[in-house]
Design a protein around this nucleic acid. Structure first.
Lengths: 257, 257
DNA sequence: ACGGTCGTTATTGCATACAATGGGCCGCGT
DNA sequence: ACGCGGCCCATTGTATGCAATAACGACCGT
């Protein structure tokens, strides 16, 4: 059995953060590659090669193939040059995609929040407390200089995940979990602008929290949908100015010998 | 290269219908197995074995593995006995799942139909004509005796797909396409009841069509969400009475020699 | 008769071998 | 110099081998 000399290169840095040793090899590889894409370590348009990833993660091509198949299904990778030999590349980031995704998130969270707003008062109480504290952290982190980009990124996500997790319905959450990482690709990019605004967002969060507190499903839904509609404009605006967000062609050549 | 004697057993019957020779082997296998599950040829709780599927489709285990990984991700299969050796079984059908799925479909189609209702009048005109004709076919097929279960099944799906396809947004459609087959598992079951009602459904369709024709997004959304809410109750009611819908334990033993 | 323990074997997990294919590069011809 | 054709190699597609393991059944003890 040939063991690659450079084992688990890619895992090392975030295994520490998230204590990943559970999950199967293909699962971990799936998440590992997805993380590379979300955080822009592999850029839109870049080719993704089985063998290269296998070496990078210190495993064979078989589990990598499985991971890649799932990433294609999810829309992170796209087959290019569509013969039988389907080569894969990271999908581009586009402003159209932002509009689609943000609208979809509004629909999904809007649906989720209705049932959350109908929960018994005491559960909403605890939820509201958590949301308030997350939002406060988000606000203060946004004001700090220099900003901690990772923390902003995580808090942003945490706020929304917090109440969706509260909604009953495993299916909704699973769909949600499959869409959200796409959004995160853009949020990561958004965070690269040091002057990116978080203020309108945190204010809108307050309105959402208030609606949940009052137990008003209609208002909560309206608030969250409005939030995503507004956020869509803000995001499009910022993304449009970031050069790396635009389609690039011709991934870097692999190192030829 | 060992070639199994019984080649492409499972593909034969529906290759004819859908002219499947496009798509890669893992893709076709994914769809093939999914179809077996949707149409109940593999039943909830049944074990799904790599080697068995490989023989059934006349291929090796490698493309099957890929297909199975995707089916797990989609929630058609679930790992049982969660050690490293994850054996797979078809997920159960439950009434809770119906409520979740129907609610989710309401949210997704509700979101989709808003943008459809805002399309220019002429495109809506063509769409409305198609929807009317599909609905009429559905209605007349439901009255025929004996019923053509496959045709009812297909028409039911076609009506909804028709307008979702019209909505802009590849992402929405891809999420939609991943959720809809789950719904179809239950619709298939619904169709097994020869006395299953289609009347309330087709009437509600008329209201939806009218809202699109009038170009009223709010009303269209309201109509489709109500439709799914009502359909949820009807479906739960019927599903509850079907014995095969209830969880069964202990899949059939594999044939031991 | 029943429960526990051990061995067998079916089945999965991963790696690797081999075939097929398509793109790129080089060289040739004009 | 430039286009064209053919060869080579990078890369994917599929099959298969081998190791690990958990399920299942048989056997034994009480």
């Amino acid at each position: 059995m040939t063991v690659y000399s450079t084992q688990f290169i890619e895992w090392g840095h975030w295994m520490a953060q998230t204590a990943i040793d559970h999950g199967t090899l293909p699962d971990r590889t799936y998440e590992g590659i997805r993380d590379l894409i979300i955080r822009g370590r592999i850029r839109p348009g870049d080719r993704v090669r089985e063998a290269e990833m296998a070496i990078r993660f210190g495993i064979s091509r078989t589990p990598v193939r499985e991971a890649l198949a799932r990433l294609v299904q999810d829309g992170y990778l796209i087959p290019i040059s569509g013969g039988r030999r389907t080569e894969l590349a990271v999908t581009e980031l586009t402003v159209d995609s932002v509009r689609e995704l943000w609208g979809l998130m509004g629909a999904l969270e809007g649906y989720a929040i209705q049932s959350v707003a109908e929960l018994p008062a005491e559960r909403r109480e605890a939820l509201v407390a958590d949301l308030r504290s997350l939002n406060a952290e988000l606000r203060s982190e946004a004001e700090r200089r220099p900003r901690n980009r990772d923390r902003l990124f995580d808090l942003q996500t945490a706020f929304h995940v917090r109440f969706v997790k509260e909604s009953p319905g495993a299916r909704l959450r699973s769909v949600y979990d499959s869409v959200r990482p796409h959004v995160q690709r853009y949020e990561w990019l958004y965070g690269t602008r040091s002057d990116a605004l978080y203020e309108p967002s945190t204010s809108e969060h307050l309105r959402i929290i208030a609606a949940i507190k009052r137990g008003n499903p209609v208002e909560a839904r309206e608030a969250i949908e409005t939030h995503w509609r507004n956020a869509s404009q803000r995001t499009v605006h910022v993304i449009e100015e970031i050069p790396t967000a635009r389609p690039r062609r011709a991934s870097q050549k692999s190192a030829r010998r």
